[in-house]
């Protein structure tokens, strides 16, 4: 087996073991039977069609935000702006709904989704432009723009777009049925999931089998040689940042429309950051991000269910999510190091 393959297996086995031990210690410490609670979580995540659909609902924005990190990473860029792009996409998508509330579905729905994607792409594209033209570090700029986007959304839902009928609750009006993203398989899971998986597959094929993928690899490997071959770092930076941002923006408007039904605070519970972690866990691989996103979505959904039925504080799901990330990243790091040493 290849070295990379064995590293991956060691990382998966070791990471899972470390996570199970860590989670058991944590559960025991808060006075819960570890094994029973953990198996209950698996049931709450994937045990029946309702749990599964809830997990997929959570997985959708995480997957899209992960793709928004992986694509720039293929060019050697590290962005942490999924959250901001998601919020800004939600904002621009909602703007279309506010402007054309009575438009028929064939017009409103595509226009809203497109506006969300364009908004997210533009938000991310600003950071891309700063990076490509002025050499501003994209990690810092995307991080800071997260705060701006979230506060912009707050600004409109507390101000101009606040629905008078909501009795002071900071939110826009409910979206008309023509602006609701259709669900799939008769569950709460929506079209965003299909788009996310399709995007992952298309992007994977693009970066591994096309001339564009070669351009990204050459640019990531040696900018000087890339310039000789005629690949423009400026153009590709803008492209990957805008495309990535568009996916996150699309996630934002889907969340707003399909899950919340209107723009309000807290449309994302850290999906952008979770997506970033999923991207790293996947080793910046589009296809591997799909199952990982679903797994993490399951963990979050199970956490919600535990809080509801077993009266375990919801923060414990977040704590376990953190344990999972630390265990997985730590194990893959250690496995990589150990193999490099003896290889």
């Amino acid at each position: 087996m290849s070295a990379a393959g064995s590293i991956r297996i060691i990382a998966i086995v070791g990471g899972s073991a470390a996570f199970l031990i860590g989670a058991s210690i944590f559960l025991a410490a808060i006075g819960r039977p570890p094994l029973a609670t953990l198996s209950q979580m698996v049931l709450y995540a994937f045990g029946d069609s309702y749990s599964l659909s809830e997990s997929l609902v959570k997985a959708t924005p995480i997957l899209l935000c992960a793709l928004a990190v992986i694509l720039p990473a293929r060019l050697g860029l590290i962005t942490v702006g999924g959250e901001g792009q998601l919020y800004f996409g939600a904002l621009t998508g909602t703007a279309v709904v506010i402007a054309l509330p009575a438009a028929p579905m064939v017009v409103l729905l595509p226009a809203m989704l497109l506006a969300g994607a364009i908004g997210g792409g533009a938000w991310s594209g600003i950071a891309g432009l700063l990076r490509a033209r002025c050499n501003v570090n994209e990690t810092i700029s995307t991080l800071l723009m997260n705060y701006v986007a979230v506060l912009l959304v707050n600004y409109v839902i507390y101000g101009a777009w606040k629905d008078p009928a909501s009795l002071g609750w900071p939110a826009t009006m409910m979206f008309p049925p023509a602006a609701i993203v259709p669900s799939v398989f008769g569950t709460r899971a929506h079209v965003g999931l299909i788009v996310g998986i399709a995007a992952a597959v298309v992007l994977h094929i693009s970066v591994t089998h096309t001339r564009w993928g070669i351009a990204l690899r050459v640019l990531a490997g040696n900018r000087k040689v890339a310039a000789m071959a005629g690949f423009s770092f400026v153009k590709q930076t803008l492209l990957v940042m805008a495309l990535g941002g568009a996916l996150a923006g699309f996630a934002g408007i889907c969340e707003t429309s399909a899950i919340q039904g209107r723009l309000q605070a807290g449309i994302s519970v850290g999906y952008g950051l979770t997506g970033f972690l999923v991207a790293w866990l996947s080793g910046q691989n589009f296809l591997r991000a799909i199952p990982i996103a679903i797994l993490i979505g399951g963990l979050i959904a199970a956490g919600d269910a535990l809080q509801l039925y077993s009266k375990i504080p919801s923060a414990s799901a977040t704590i376990m999510q953190g344990l999972l990330f630390v265990a997985a990243l730590g194990a893959s790091g250690l496995a990589g190091r150990g193999t490099a040493r003896h290889g």
Partner: peptide, 12 residues
């Protein structure tokens, strides 16, 4: 292949 990489097919 880098010398004429831009002349490659989209699916090389």
């Amino acid at each position: 292949a880098l010398r004429d990489v831009r002349q490659l097919d989209f699916f090389p």
